[in-house]
């Protein structure tokens, strides 16, 4: 078994693969990330052949680890890096029970955090990636973590997965080509490329931020924006969380505090530039 230990925010991973190549790619993608504290990884994510012979004969990649899901389909060997990313995600989604998880991206400026919830295709990853190249600090892509003791946002800056048109936009704005993973084509999510957060995001990954604004982006529509009622915000944040119920009453308290105190809105945008402009305008109004 080929292994790689790495810490991303509060999660100390031991990542395993039956094949050496995917681990080598992962090491390059996560260059500069710290090793687990005290050398002890407490979360295991791994990929391997679904059947023994699948290791050599038309190899397939199964997504495994401490926690597994019944319905997952083995993936093509060429998409091993995506499979590793999903194995890493699954351990957080099914295993994390210290911080409240919100399915969103987030960036920080001046100690204040902008949270962008949304399912895949809403553009939340692209916006976060590009804002992070304009002076914002990347806090999270996919999983925002709320500390149940303080209510603050704990960064979980894993590599950002950019899809289809977002790849070219990021390539145009990110100077250092070494921050990009390989170009994966014909994956279940279409064209895919991973982008490593910049050095600042990695260096300051243990610096929490204060949630200050929640924006729901919708990519591909004419510019428009609208308020989000507190009850809908409560529903969207909790239904989008894989551990809200498991965390019990403290999670209820924090989501209630968030919906009562933090402004929220949704906005549509036809392209990334207009999206960023709308976000900056909202942030100015909210004092970020």
């Amino acid at each position: 078994m080929h292994g790689f230990d790495v810490r991303v925010g509060p999660i100390s991973y031991r990542i395993g693969s039956a094949w050496a190549a995917p681990i080598a790619v992962l090491r390059r993608l996560y260059a500069g990330y710290p090793a687990p504290a005290d050398g002890i990884a407490t979360v295991t994510a791994r990929i391997g052949p679904p059947r023994p012979w699948r290791r050599w004969i038309r190899p397939q990649v199964a997504i495994e680890g401490d926690h597994n899901l019944p319905d997952t389909v083995p993936m093509a060997f060429g998409h091993a890096l995506l499979a590793i990313e999903m194995a890493m995600n699954m351990q957080v989604a099914l295993g994390e029970c210290r911080h409240l998880l919100i399915h969103a991206s987030a960036v920080e400026r001046g100690g204040k955090a902008l949270i962008m919830p949304g399912d895949s295709g809403s553009g939340k990853s692209t916006l976060a990636a590009l804002l992070a190249e304009r002076g914002w600090r990347l806090l999270a892509d996919e999983f925002v973590m709320i500390d149940l003791a303080t209510g603050r946002l704990i960064p979980f800056p894993r590599a950002i997965s950019l899809k289809n048109s977002a790849i070219a936009e990021a390539e145009a704005r990110v100077a250092d080509p070494a921050r990009f993973g390989p170009h994966l084509s014909a994956t279940p999510k279409g064209e895919l490329r991973h982008l490593r957060p910049n050095a600042e995001a990695i260096a300051r990954m243990d610096e929490p931020a204060e949630p200050a604004l929640i924006l729901f982006p919708s990519y591909g529509f004419e510019p428009a924006s609208d308020g989000v009622s507190r009850s809908e915000l409560f529903m969207r944040l909790t239904e989008g969380s894989t551990n809200y119920i498991a965390l019990g009453e403290p999670a209820f308290d924090h989501v209630l505090r968030i919906v009562e105190t933090i402004p929220a809105a949704r906005f549509a945008y036809p392209d990334t530039d207009s999206g960023i402009a709308i976000v900056e305008q909202f942030c100015a109004e909210a004092g970020l």
């Binding site: 504290a37 005290d38 002890i40 029970c97 210290r98 498991a246 019990g248």
Partner: peptide
């Protein structure tokens, strides 16, 4: 226990408590 292990086991106790409820 080393700190990372202590935290992981604390989480496991919280998870078990939720399961019990």
């Amino acid at each position: 226990l080393p700190a990372p292990v202590a935290r992981a086991l604390e989480d496991a106790r919280a998870q078990a408590e939720f399961g019990r409820t």
